[in-house]
Design a protein around this nucleic acid. Structure first.
Lengths: 188, 188
DNA sequence: GTCTATAATCAGATAGAC
DNA sequence: GTCTATCTGATTATAGAC
């Protein structure tokens, strides 16, 4: 038997899971380490054994999302022959896979600063835009891309309780429509 | 001369303006009354003369937006003959008029709880949905509406620095496309 | 690996002088 | 209408025992 009182197989993962729960319920800023510790049944000090700070704990939750999204963008840029509908479907899937982290960001966007996400988000927006309208898009194109993918975010967030297999094709239709891809409107 | 040391014509309005500034920069939760007072050049206690609590201060900033949006929905429901493009344009204008409050909500969504906005937002979503797909929408319709108006929100937020007269018509096109209004796709 | 105990700071809010 | 001064409680983080 070890010297510790709890025999959790992976306290670190449990901390991350409970922290994410609370970040979604209350937002990052409004969630204290005390609340996280209480819900698990350990003390606050135990959290500091696993993570050097609250920001580092949050970062560890967001990193898998960043890695997944970067991989999607790398692959999409390497295969320009893929259809818009395929790309949109993949973007939807990435979002759904990391719905937890993503929802926490929607609930309290100020988490972005604590996790240095702020540097990434700008890059993501640019690369995503590049996939659909190329570099130097017009204001008309920028607006349509912003609505298309901003809307995709909101749908994944708002419609979390609806069946994914029904939402997914509807979302792809809507994003295509917002972009105006199939009507040629995007060439403005 | 009055007994007060500052001769601001309307300290109450100044408090609201500075508070909104900081809510946009840092989010509601991360902004302290001390910071608001410091930026104006008064003490924290002075704030409590004008507002009974931090939540009430926030509420006073959001109420004009609520009133404006309610008025828009009332009018839209009373005039079912108005075209979708007109309605979308009006919705865009309401958002732009209250871009400050709206941006604060995007930066830190947890403000919704403190302002009792949470009861309103559900009602707004339902009424807005009703304008375009009627009651009892299918999942397909719900998804397209969520993307259309979620995207509209994001565009107003993300493209704040772009000229409104160019963004506006592009936004209307994109929302129409996301809804699938002009292609008849919404009848699913 | 988790604990107790505590430091240092900052939060929202209030009482009462002027 | 604004101030000084203070209360109360919560916060992040650390030191050191086990």
């Amino acid at each position: 038997m070890s010297a510790s009182r709890r025999q959790s197989p992976d306290t670190k993962a449990e901390i991350q899971a409970v922290a994410l729960e609370l970040f979604i319920e209350q937002g990052f800023t409004a969630t204290s380490l005390q609340q996280i510790a209480d819900r698990i049944g350990v003390t606050k000090a135990a959290l500091y054994y696993h993570f050097p700070s609250k920001a580092d704990l949050a970062r560890s939750i967001f990193l898998p999302w960043k890695d997944d999204l970067d991989a999607f963008l790398d692959e999409a840029e390497a295969h320009p022959e893929r259809s818009p509908r395929e790309l949109i479907g993949d973007a939807f899937d990435v979002l759904v896979r990391h719905r937890g982290a993503f929802t926490a960001m929607m609930v309290d966007g100020s988490i972005i600063r604590h996790v240095d996400l702020i540097a990434w988000t700008g890059e993501w927006a640019t690369r995503l835009q590049g996939l659909f309208v190329g570099p130097n898009p017009s204001i008309y194109q920028q607006t349509r891309v912003a609505i298309a993918f901003g809307g995709l975010n909101d749908a994944v967030f708002l419609l979390a309780q609806l069946p994914e297999e029904e939402v997914r094709p509807a979302a792809i239709d809507a994003v295509c429509g917002a972009l105006g891809i199939e009507t040629g409107e995007l060439d403005n």
